[in-house]
Design a protein around this nucleic acid. Structure first.
Lengths: 183, 183
DNA sequence: TTGCTCCTCACGTCACGTGAGGTGGC
DNA sequence: TTGCTCCTCACGTCACGTGAGGTGGC
């Protein structure tokens, strides 16, 4: 199969058609069109989609992903490596959680009850997981951004300036409201 | 400490003040108030909050949680047990993912590249995880609902009918649009 | 009096979900 | 001709985030 229709791609990847529509709408993955206006995904777009889903799995938002893919072109091998590291970390964290819960469970069985203050700590343990996730994500973004070469940075800067210059005043105003001002 | 102010509770649990406001707004956790109108959380509310955060961790939406807590009163011991089982599952899934990624990584290093069709499968592996999560959640909801005794069911039904009767026609119309009709 | 925490609106956000209504190739 | 897949609006959703503007006890 050389290209994919949106329905085939959705069925095979488990993504929804609406998700692919959304990525097209926001300019994240813009497939070509047939004469009838139907989307056709090529291998290059599948590669891009793989990068997006992987990055999404790291907790990045779609806007961040757009910026990252605009600035760098993460190597598939590199992404898989990072996913591997992440999986190793998840195994470790899940194991710690499991042991902690086992300890709490045993304590319950010994004392028969649990004070509210202890439940507060339990909640803390559950919510802090998300906070850690957030931190790892920020660190990863820094790492990916730093991988940009000086040339890539200059190129990105030029691309942004050109895009800015090509906008109508209204569009620029819109951008100013939603994003930090360009250099 | 006998009761908690909203700020103290937020700081100690890692939840935000806004989240606690939100839970109050939708009637999920309604603390008492001081003379000045400040919220005061008692041990009973902390227990309820613990149930909510735990259920949230299982992937339930707040509306589902409201229904569950209205129908059953999940035992803290039972919830911890379920979380333990979930943690064990997470360890297993993370381990499988890790091994799969390791295999892909090795294959990359051997062949030097990866065809687009293989990336489609990789995407499928990532998104299917979420689908599994969804299924486990549906199964858990069924399990928790089945734990309701017949008496609890009847009581819940009566409570719903009373709430319905107490509504203005406008509110009933609103309910009809957002939920299935009551029996 | 000065901070600090608390309060209530109320609009914004993010990543899509969910119809509505219609077209086009096998 | 009949399905089936595809299309474009466009409003809805979920769980809060994020100010705005103001009050009250130590």
């Amino acid at each position: 199969m050389d290209t994919w229709s949106i329905g085939d791609l959705a069925a095979q990847t488990g993504l929804t058609v609406r998700t692919l529509h959304h990525y097209d709408e926001i300019g994240l993955v813009r497939p070509g069109r047939t004469g009838a206006g139907h989307r056709r995904y090529t291998a290059a777009e599948v590669v891009r989609l793989h990068r997006i889903v992987t990055l999404r799995g790291f907790g990045f938002g779609l806007a961040e992903i757009a910026t990252l893919l605009d600035a760098t072109t993460p190597d598939v091998r590199d992404l898989v490596e990072r996913q591997y590291v992440q999986a190793v970390e998840r195994v470790a964290r899940a194991t710690r959680q499991r042991d902690r819960l086992d300890a709490v469970r045993r304590r319950f069985d010994a004392t028969g009850d649990v004070p509210a203050a202890d439940l507060v700590s339990l909640i803390e343990g559950m919510t802090r997981m998300d906070a850690e996730e957030f931190e790892r994500r920020a660190a990863l973004r820094r790492a990916l951004t730093e991988k940009m070469s000086a040339d890539e940075r200059a190129e990105m800067s030029a691309r942004r300036a050109a895009a800015w210059a090509a906008m109508t005043p209204d569009q620029q105003e819109e951008m100013r409201r939603s994003r930090p001002a360009p250099a």
